[in-house]
Nucleic acid binder design. Structure first.
Lengths: 224, 224
DNA sequence: CGTCGTTGGATAGCTTCACTATCCATGATT
DNA sequence: AATCATGGATAGTGAAGCTATCCAACGACG
């Protein structure tokens, strides 16, 4: 298909597709003449993925390129590629080094990780993300001790277990890697949205607002 | 204290503080002469809060103003103010209205909320956030059915329950509201970072990477 | 009292990001 | 052959989040 058709089928303007091509987010099309190129279904899929990462996952364009490059890096093993890809995702500012709040946060983080039985991996960008967020909370005197953070860790463990199970029963390894990254990014807003909805419900329940909703979940079992 | 001291104590440049004053994120100082103003501890605290929301919570400056304004709106009840404040937090693009993927996502969302026994609140911005994320997943043929989303919902419920308990045992009502907003925003990176760490550990465990860490947590029981 | 550095308000400028619009040589279509 | 579409190169746009410059009024000091 031509650029125009790619644009129509994806709902992305040709100007934007050209921009993504320039930025290396999409591989160039198969050159059919000196001035025309041909794109296939794979391009369409990739374009949709990029779009989802950028718009839904709020990943910067430059970062998306890094992430997708890491996924396709043939020279590394699966786990390393996944680590590299997820590691280049946005992870906020680095923690302020010489700050007492940072020191406290480091300590809390280490303690939580120990209690959860995950090792201590300060080289993981997510660790810095955790520490700087805890430091910001500490600086404002908000509760952020081990006991406060642990429930989040337990919830995260449950989620990760579920996610890895889902990923394992997917198709090819390449697809699997891409899927792992896509699910990591695209389920973030799902999780955050559900948390906000849960908060709203819980706040309503506790402080009694407007129309009460049913208190017990009606579910009996889950069916894929 | 003067602007310069406020700057020094917060680590934020005077230029940036002036910018926040202009944007209405900080209330103006007490004017002591025609050309000089005096700031107090409350300003310092507020500045730190703004900084945390903007830098750690990735809340746009304009949005932070709306959120903080809503928190201080004396004309509404607690739950409404909280709803207004959290509702003006960033929530991604609105779901594409005439898209089949959106329709499927709406259905999944409704089903999940039903199974969890939370009502259906399409007016909540978090609901749109949930639907557009699910739609993006669906468009890419990634698993996003009810059974896949439900575990996130359960995790969110556990988290929200913990959070409301924490908020309830805080001080004054005004502080409580501000705390609710701050905790909502500032625990987002905590949760996401822990999820990524949990994923990394789980991936390592399943696909056997590098130095294995202890498999059982050293704690004895969990307190849900 | 005059000088000189400091303060803080106003204004304009800068940088990054994510696109978007224009040009134009070539190629396809009628 | 005449006209329209394609796609690469280049420059421009607008929002966001600061940052730098001016400048009149203060205020501490000699």
């Amino acid at each position: 298909m031509r650029l125009a058709e790619l644009s129509e089928r994806s709902g992305v303007s040709t100007a934007t597709i050209k921009y993504y091509l320039r930025e290396g987010l999409l591989p160039p099309g198969r050159r059919v003449t000196a001035t025309q190129a041909e794109y296939d279904e794979e391009h369409l899929r990739r374009l949709r993925l990029v779009r989802a990462l950028v718009q839904v996952g709020r990943v910067p364009v430059a970062t998306a390129r890094e992430v997708l490059t890491a996924v396709e890096d043939e020279t590394a093993g699966q786990v390393d590629r996944l680590g590299a890809a997820v590691g280049s995702l946005p992870h906020g500012p680095a923690p302020a080094p010489a700050d007492p709040a940072t020191a406290t946060a480091e300590h809390t983080a280490a303690e939580v990780l120990r209690l959860l039985g995950w090792g201590h991996h300060p080289e993981n960008p997510a660790h810095g993300m955790l520490v700087s967020a805890l430091a910001a909370l500490g600086r404002l005197d908000y509760p952020c001790g081990t006991a406060h953070v642990l429930p989040y860790g337990r919830a995260a463990a449950a989620i990760a277990e579920h996610e890895l199970a889902v990923i394992e029963e997917l198709d090819a390894p390449t697809t699997q890697l891409e899927a792992a990254v896509a699910l990591t990014v695209l389920y973030e807003p799902v999780l955050l949205a559900l948390r906000r909805l849960a908060q709203a419900r819980e706040a309503g329940r506790r402080f009694g607002s407007g129309p009460e909703t049913n208190d017990d979940p009606p579910h009996e079992a889950e069916g894929r």
